[in-house]
Design a protein around this nucleic acid. Structure first.
Length: 842
DNA sequence: GCGGACTGCTTACCT
DNA sequence: ACAGGTAAGCAGTCCGCG
């Protein structure tokens, strides 16, 4: 590892990561230098060592033979910690080791296993280092080589402070302090970064089988490296059977010419040299393919470890200097998928994500790489790199900025943020807060045994506690419907009720009377709950500062965009804050807390419904945190808002105004037409990603017809148009006028085919047929199939023909899809279908 | 041996 | 490895039925 000397003068660098240098037994901080556009490595100079905690005295620890004789043992040191579970100060002992594996991680004989009880022994060392040194990844530091990096303090813009000032009045000092330090952290500017995207191709004869990167048996055919600094390169291996030709590919604003290499090792070295130039490298699946393949291929060809700028982890690949971001892992993350990208892509493949976010898919073709000419490979490989870079740079580098913001909130290294999901981010945030305040991080088993289980029973078999209320919709058409909902109900409930793992069923006798509704659970009156404090301050910042600022037209666009990224990142944390508390794998898992949140949520929604009825408003539907109000007078809406704040301290806002809503008898299923005629579709089959395209198209035509309806009379006209549409769809189906692809169901296979042991669903049957034909399939792949006549009933689209299509099955689909809307409108499609059938036979 | 009633599995959705 | 609630379709099983 190259390490910076101490001669440079003070520079402003951004801390992006901390890694552990095994041979040196040290944490190494990775800083980004915005002026030089490169990464600077600074090793720890404090002598920080890995440790865990014990409740034994230092003397007692030293009496444990295995520990003092442990080759990795370093020293013991007494420390005071406050235990939130018992609300008592404890005298604990820090047991230090020379390397993280000696604390824990070896199959046997680790120090944590030799202690009768160990605390904080499962935290990755890099994270320990960040927390203990009070580091803030994503922040700017002043580095002058001699002294330890000092954080540069920013003051948030005055307008931000003003917005919060009012809210902070009357709040306790701890809360004010928390909010201010968050603002300081989140409002820092994000530096401009140079990013390169890498994609490689391998000379593998099979197109359906991905080359095994652990073996790296076949030669690397090419590498495309596109970057934001315009240094775009396409490196290519010369093959004995093909004469090099000169060509030019236009990409990323420049004309790219192939650079041929006679020798594969030279090619690899050139790739490595290029990779080492960049502070940030993005790939799509680089953790499991591109970087691993390059590393292992180079090793196989006897390139020395020192020459390879890549280090391999168990299921990831890091760059020795730069920051590697695997977009596949990040975009696969459910929170990112839903809250950051609004669920616009469903399948996480480069092609699908590229199409959905950029309108740019992969170059299509089934030819194996060795059968392609140089130019074909170039088009293919460069396109993949283009999509990868495009995904990172779109919307003014939204993705990278989001990663940076999640890094700041979670206190994790950037690479770790990308690889982990929201529960790890929240875990890190929580542990950091415990450390900073001198609180002992509780052991999960202690939380569980002290707090006990749940007292309610879930509706769904196998779930742990009762969730939200969903009202029975009043079926039919309702004009002028206003939807009101609570602004982040569950985080608000956590905030206003002081909920946290330590405050719910706290140890104080005098708090026991402070019951949560009519449950046996109580909540602490003496302490401010840590979860409540953290979630509450993040919520207030999002609602009062960053969301409004991101929409403030008087601000310059780049500033608004920064606030929008902050707002999105906060949303991710807030939305998951309740869920993790009910997730067994979360280290602060606390069933009574999770249960109390939904319990309070149910109470609040029921009360809101009561209140609306009391005001004479009819509630036609509601789900979890929302009510659908029919024809509510404006003054009553205001009364409800006021009621919500006064009664529960939670904001209730108007979310939508529907010109009309169509409800069937089903919950979570409706069509709402907004003032502008656009339709909001929820839950209906016609909207599902698995529904055949021809059905969806017809369904959207139906919605278009409904969008034109302005009043009750309009429905009569619409009804006949809809009938016409239905019979036209049926006619085309019977005449075989739809393309096979449009008849296909598209269903995600969530696991490998052999993991379906209990039943074999239709899409798995099809997947097995495909596998028999030599197609390689993985969990997460979308299976496209049509319904055919015969025993199996289904076939892959590619392997079927119009003759086999089971038209009656498709008739059922049309009926049920249309039926979901039409039965509420009083249109009987069953009749239509039959009439059509008759006329068809005539 | 076959079909209807039932349960359970699976996916996709909503909040 | 964030939660629970709902809809839909199909797989598989049980039971009755000359």
């Amino acid at each position: 590892m190259e390490v910076e000397g101490g001669r440079d003068k003070a520079r402003e660098l951004v801390l992006v990561s901390v890694v552990y240098d095994g041979p040196k037994r040290k944490a190494v901080m990775k800083f980004f230098d915005p002026l030089a556009q490169r990464i600077v490595l600074i090793p720890d100079s404090s002598g920080h060592e890995p440790y865990c905690l014990s409740d034994l005295s230092p003397e007692e620890v030293l009496k444990i033979d295995g520990i003092v004789n442990h080759p990795g043992f370093s020293k013991v040191k007494p420390v005071k910690k406050h235990d939130l579970l018992t609300d008592r100060d404890l005298q604990m002992t820090m047991v230090f080791a020379r390397d993280p594996l000696s604390i824990g991680g070896r199959p046997s004989g680790s120090i944590r296993d030799l202690l009768p009880k160990a605390w904080e022994a499962n935290i990755r060392y890099e994270l320990n280092y960040i927390y203990d040194m009070g580091l803030q990844p994503g922040s700017t530091y002043i580095v002058d080589g001699e002294e330890k990096p000092a954080r540069k303090i920013f003051s948030p813009p005055g307008e931000l402070l003003n917005r919060m000032q009012e809210k902070l009045r009357g709040k306790d000092a701890e809360y004010v302090e928390a909010v201010k330090s968050w603002m300081e952290l989140l409002s820092q500017p994000i530096p401009e970064v140079t990013i390169a995207a890498l994609d490689i191709e391998v000379l593998s004869s099979s197109r359906t089988r991905i080359p095994d990167p652990s073996e790296a048996e076949e030669a690397v055919a090419s590498a495309a490296i596109l970057s934001t600094d315009g240094r775009n390169r396409f490196l290519l291996l010369k093959r004995p059977d093909r004469v090099p030709d000169e060509f030019v590919v236009e990409k990323n604003g420049s004309q790219i010419r192939p650079e041929y290499f006679d020798d594969e090792v030279d090619l690899l070295r050139a790739i490595f040299e290029e990779l080492a130039r960049y502070p940030f490298l993005v790939t799509f699946n680089g953790d499991n393919f591109d970087l691993v393949y390059l590393h292992n291929r180079a090793r196989r060809l006897n390139v020395s470890q020192e020459e390879i700028p890549i280090t391999l982890g168990r299921d990831y690949a890091d760059l020795k200097e730069g920051i590697h971001i695997d977009l596949y892992k990040f975009l696969f993350n459910r929170s990112v998928q839903i809250y950051a990208f609004n669920n616009v892509y469903k399948e996480v493949t480069l092609d699908a994500v590229g199409e959905a976010l950029l309108g740019l898919g992969k170059v299509k073709g089934e030819k194996p790489i060795p059968d392609m000419g140089y130019r074909e490979i170039a088009e293919y490989c460069l396109r993949d790199a283009e999509i990868t870079l495009g995904l990172t740079t779109m919307y003014d580098k939204l993705l990278l900025k989001l990663v940076m913001m999640l890094t700041r909130i979670s206190r994790m290294p950037m690479e770790e943020v990308v690889r982990h999901s929201v529960s790890a981010w929240i875990r890190s945030l929580f542990i950091n807060d415990h450390r900073a305040r001198g609180y002992l991080v509780p052991r999960p088993e202690d939380i569980l045994s002290l707090k006990g289980g749940t007292v309610t029973r879930a509706i769904i078999k196998g779930k742990k506690y009762l969730g939200a209320i969903v009202l029975e919709p009043v079926s039919g058409v309702h004009f002028n419907v206003v939807v009101m909902d609570f602004a982040s109900l569950y985080p608000s409930v956590i905030m206003t009720n002081n909920l946290s793992y330590e405050t719910v069923r706290c140890p104080h006798q005098e708090c026991r009377s402070n019951r949560i509704l009519s449950s046996p659970h109580w909540v602490c009156k003496k302490r401010k709950g840590l979860t409540s404090l953290i979630i509450g301050s993040l919520r207030d910042l999002r609602v009062n500062v960053y969301s409004p600022m991101s929409k403030n037209p008087s601000l310059p666009e780049n500033e608004r965009k920064l606030y929008d990224v902050v707002q999105r990142a906060l949303k991710v944390f807030l939305n998951a804050s309740y869920g993790v508390m009910g997730a067994e794998a979360f280290p602060f898992y606390c069933p009574p807390l999770a249960e109390s949140v939904t319990m309070l949520g149910r109470q609040i929604l029921s009360d809101l419904i009561e209140e609306a009825k009391r005001l004479g408003i009819s509630v036609v539907y509601g789900d979890t945190d929302s009510v659908f109000l029919k024809n509510p007078p404006a003054d009553k809406i205001e009364l409800l808002k006021k009621w919500a704040v006064e009664r529960y301290g939670i904001d209730l806002t108007v979310d939508k105004n529907y010109r009309y809503v169509v409800f069937s008898q089903r919950k979570k299923n409706y069509v709402g037409v907004l003032e502008d005629g656009s339709a909001d579709v929820k839950g209906l089959v016609g909207k599902k990603s698995s529904t055949p395209i021809f059905v969806k198209d017809a369904f959207f035509d139906l919605l278009r017809i409904l969008g034109e309806v302005k009043d009750e009379e309009g429905f009569e006209r619409a009804k006949s148009e809809i009938k016409e549409l239905a019979s036209e769809t049926v006619r085309k189906l019977r005449n075989g006028e739809y393309r096979l692809e449009d008849l296909a169901f598209n269903v995600m296979m969530s696991r490998a085919t052999d993991a379906y042991t209990k039943t074999t669903p239709q899409h798995v049957k099809v997947a097995k047929q495909l596998e028999t034909n030599g197609t390689e399939l993985r969990a997460g792949d979308i299976i496209s199939y049509v319904k055919v006549k015969g025993k199996e009933g289904v076939k892959p689209v590619q392997m079927s023909s119009h003759k086999e299509i089971d038209v009656e099955k498709y008739m059922d689909i049309i009926k049920s899809t249309f039926g979901q809307v039409l039965d509420a409108l009083g249109i009987d499609l069953e009749e239509e279908g039959r009439a059509k059938k008759l006329s068809d036979f005539m």
